[in-house]
């Protein structure tokens, strides 16, 4: 298990891996928004957390289609499926590796990007916290979709189409928790707890669905 985690992490961060590309993509999204809506500093500060969340969602989608595909092409997936450890557990570990190389890095890099968007320290902290809690759910949902589309030649596009509707609740509660933390009267804990609940729900559903989908490819 730990080997698998380390292996996936090494793959992600090696040259050509998806981890740093995701970060660059995140930077590109954040940089492009001010061009689209104009350099209004107040407006940017207000919608900044939402921009960061959308950027994180898109960046997390970026590497998802390769989650199982490379393994399937070189046959590692068959080996993983023959293991005694349940396949859903293996999927969970792979998700963790993917999350560390995408969601965690994005959450950690929020202070830098937050300055670009004129966010205050409180907003930066809130966005970091919600991203830290919310992005695993994105990866876990994505794992299910990635497993479903692994056999398709152009699965990458379809993964995004399938993930987005399921990811919208995560996005809604992530952004609303962040906004609630910034604007004093709104309750922060409610959306934050729902975010955690979604996370746990998908931690169960995502790997199970992915494992079932991968198994069904066999026969």
């Amino acid at each position: 298990m730990r080997r698998l985690l380390l292996r996936d992490l090494a793959l992600a961060f090696r040259a050509g891996g998806g981890g740093l590309t995701g970060l660059l993509f995140f930077l590109a999204v954040v940089a492009i928004v001010p061009f689209g809506i104009g350099p209004d500093v107040k407006l940017l500060a207000r919608i900044g957390p939402a921009i960061l969340w959308i950027g994180a969602l898109l960046a997390a989608l970026l590497g998802l289609d390769r989650l199982f595909q490379a393994e399937r092409e070189d046959g590692t997936l068959d080996l993983l499926m023959m293991q005694e450890t349940p396949l859903s557990l293996i999927v969970l570990v792979k998700c963790m590796a993917h999350w560390v190389s995408s969601g965690l890095i994005l959450a950690l890099s929020v202070p830098v990007f937050g300055l670009l968007l004129n966010l205050g320290p409180l907003a930066i902290g809130a966005t970091m916290l919600t991203l830290f809690v919310g992005t695993p759910a994105l990866t876990l949902i994505g794992a299910g979709a990635a497993a479903v589309t692994v056999a398709l030649p152009r699965g990458g596009l379809l993964v995004s189409v399938l993930v987005l509707p399921l990811a919208i609740p995560v996005l809604i509660f992530g952004v609303s928790a962040t906004q609630a933390a910034i604007e004093a009267p709104a309750a922060f804990l409610t959306p934050f707890l729902i975010l955690i609940a979604l996370n746990l729900l998908f931690a169960v559903l995502g790997p199970l669905a992915a494992a079932t989908a991968l198994r069904s490819l066999e026969d």
């Binding site: 299910g144 479903v148 399921l166 669905a209 079932t212 989908a213």
Partner: peptide, 10 residues
């Protein structure tokens, strides 16, 4: 099989 999994997720 695959769409069934997705239906249940959705």
């Amino acid at each position: 099989r695959l769409s069934a999994i997705l239906i249940l997720l959705g």
